[in-house]
């Protein structure tokens, strides 16, 4: 392998149901900065069916080129089909870097590809930089979030990483921005595809919005405990027009679904206001919420680590305080 043969930063532009995922635009934004330092291009890989019309959007957010692989087989994500196409693109274009969102798709596809391309992969990065030697420095949390590790992949190409959604900033959209759109001929060896999709079931979305996009989060932990007590959190959230989220313990106990989990194995959030209720503050949890603008923590244990990141801490019984707070807020809002 000659490293000089490998050029340009490729971004896996994840789309689901014909919608570009926010993390794809965030990655293109970050890739633009890195590409400027390297004097290289940002190339987005867009896979799917009837998705060609999305290519221009990727260019307007900063891609210099979009490689479009559009075929009926790619309508739904299946590991092997997507892995074949992306590895063919990588073999043809020899990217120096490939970035993926750390989503359920990115975290399934990227490791499969790293083994196929015999190269390194760094998971869930929160920071990407270029070293003096023009190598990619990938920084990620380890040990549940408090230890940070900077990782490099100097002897193999491409350098690959998955990046946490919500961490990088997308660029402002430039409506007239121009770029190159290249159609990639899709050839999939279907004899190697041994998984098929039977049914896609969308979760009831009701009025919930993604917790990583919420302005106010009311988050409960082990100290809240039961489903009945969580209903009280929902009442508080409704008054504040907030979303309910939770720590891992509560999700593992099945009280609340996984898409509501804040922390290292859940989502990274940075709302304007974060209530940490009955959450002691394991470092995995802190890793996912400590960037919130204002943090109010209520816990029984006055030595709980959550107070090391909270702006306002209350030592007390969360299940007594919450109903009272909800009532007071209702009165405030009806004034």
């Amino acid at each position: 392998m000659n490293k000089n043969d490998y050029k340009n930063i490729f971004v896996f532009a994840e789309q689901r149901g014909g919608k570009i995922q926010p993390v794809a635009l965030e990655l293109i934004g970050k890739a633009s900065d890195l590409a400027a330092e390297l004097g290289e291009k940002v190339v987005a890989m867009l896979l799917g069916h009837n998705v060609s019309s999305l290519a221009q959007e990727l260019i307007e957010y900063g891609a210099d080129e979009v490689i479009v692989a559009d075929a009926p087989e790619l309508e739904h994500y299946i590991t092997e089909e997507y892995a074949q196409v992306v590895s063919q693109i990588a073999d043809k274009y020899l990217p120096s870097i490939i970035l993926f969102g750390a989503t359920t798709i990115g975290r399934d596809l990227a490791p499969r590809l790293s083994a196929r391309l015999t190269t390194g992969l760094t998971a869930d990065c929160t920071k990407l930089e270029i070293s003096e030697g023009k190598e990619l420095m990938m920084t990620r949390p380890a040990f549940g979030g408090n230890l940070m590790a900077t990782i490099m992949c100097t002897e193999h190409r491409p350098q690959m990483s998955t990046v946490r959604p919500g961490v990088m900033q997308k660029k402002d959209r430039q409506p007239s921005r121009e770029g190159v759109i290249t159609n990639f001929e899709v050839k999939i060896d279907m004899s190697r595809v041994k998984v098929k999709l039977i049914e896609e079931v969308k979760a009831e979305k009701d009025n919930r919005i993604d917790i990583s996009e919420a302005n106010i989060l009311v988050s409960g932990g082990r100290g809240v405990g039961t489903k009945e007590n969580f209903a009280k959190l929902t009442e508080l959230a409704d008054v504040l027009n907030a979303q309910v989220s939770a720590s891992r313990a509560v999700v593992d106990a099945g009280v609340i679904p996984h898409d509501r989990q804040v922390g290292q194995t859940g989502k990274t959030v940075r709302p304007n206001l974060y209530f940490a209720l009955g959450i002691s503050g394991a470092i995995q949890h802190l890793a996912g919420m400590e960037e919130s603008d204002y943090i109010i923590a209520i816990n029984k244990d006055k030595f709980a680590p959550i107070y090391s990141v909270s702006d306002l801490g209350i030592v007390g019984d969360v299940n007594k305080i919450i109903p009272l707070l909800t009532e007071r807020l209702k009165k405030e809002f009806s004034k």
Partner: peptide
């Protein structure tokens, strides 16, 4: 293929105020 260049502890935020009080007053705060 990957090597750890360095590992470091994340900086700590300075802690905020903490009150130990009854629920009524806590809600007021």
């Amino acid at each position: 293929p990957t090597k750890v260049l360095k590992a470091f502890a994340k900086g700590l935020k300075s802690p905020g105020e903490v009150f130990e009080t009854d629920p009524e007053e806590a809600v007021g705060i």
